[in-house]
Simulated scan of single mutants.
Amino acid sequence: MVPRVMTVASTDSGGGAGVMADLKTFTAMKVFGTAVIVSLTAQNSVTVKSIYELPVSFINDQFDAIMDDIGTDSAKTGMLYSEEIISAVTEKFQQYNVTNIVVDPVMISKTNARLLKEDAVSSMVNKLMKIATLVTPNIPESEVISSIKIHSIGDARIAAKRIYEMTGASVLVKGGHSHGDISTDILYDGSEYSEFPGARIDTRNTHGTGDTLSASIASYLASGMNLQQAISLARKYIEGAIKNSFPMGKGYGSLSHFWAIK
């Protein structure tokens, strides 16, 4: 049976991030992707012009339509925007006993637009993250959640452990916002740390990187990989997508989602 993966996230009219990036990633991973869309964004490579939040009743209908018929082997979340949406999504995951949940706590876009309302952060931490298998914050998001300033790998380890203690979910602190030639992601699973280093790629074409990584991890989990394997393989995929990226628009360019497809 083809592995099934659900994205619960928002659209990107520019095609580089959000649900659009997730579905491209699912296709590249050769899994069957479904989507619960929670809001619509009018954005491109330069800016987010506006956000339209969908009614919770319609979000619930999408969940029910997928789960009553197709089901899912894993799920990932992206931009959820509000406390009301986060609460509804958490309840639906619990209702259908969804497993292998990867939470990408999207807060700020690369163009510095707020994608998670300030009053929704506590709901993200205290509700959704507590049922997650893995959360994948970047350094600024990790600092907000953990209240720890991250200047080094040691700080990232402390923040990862703090977030684990707050949520009970494994934590992957992504190192893309750090400095130096090597970017290192730090995983803490409640008992041990793992480091995933990689050469930093000098490019502006990074729109949707976080979405793509979390979608890839969820795909590998749906395919039966353990967490370590899923993260390692997903990092190889995202590195290839960045290396083969290309300009698209006037701002942050696009990843090459299909670089590995023969």
Rank of each mutant, 00 (worst) to 15 (best):
S146G: 10
G154P: 07
I153R: 03
A113K: 02
I148A: 10
N112S: 13
M129A: 08
S142D: 01
K130S: 06
K130G: 09
N138T: 03
A120W: 01
T133N: 13
T133F: 07
S122N: 10
R114L: 01
G154C: 09
D119T: 07
S152F: 03
I148V: 12
L128H: 06
A132W: 01
A120D: 08
G154T: 13
L134E: 11
M124E: 02
V125S: 08
K117Y: 08
K127N: 12
S142L: 02
V121C: 06
V121R: 06
P140F: 09
L134F: 04
A120L: 05
N126D: 12
K149E: 12
K130I: 07
A120Q: 07
I145R: 00
T133R: 12
K130D: 11
V144G: 10
V135T: 14
E118M: 07
E118Q: 08
N126W: 03
K127H: 13
T133E: 11
I131G: 05
N138I: 00
S152N: 15
S122P: 15
M124G: 10
S142I: 00
I150L: 06
P137N: 01
R114Q: 14
E143C: 06
L115W: 01
L116G: 00
H151W: 13
L134P: 01
E143H: 06
T133Q: 14
I153G: 05
H151S: 13
R114F: 04
G154A: 13
H151F: 12
L134S: 10
P137W: 00
K117C: 14
I148M: 09
L115G: 01
K149W: 03
L116H: 02
I145S: 01
L128V: 08
P137L: 00
S152G: 13
I131E: 02
V135A: 14
K117I: 11
N138W: 02
A113D: 10
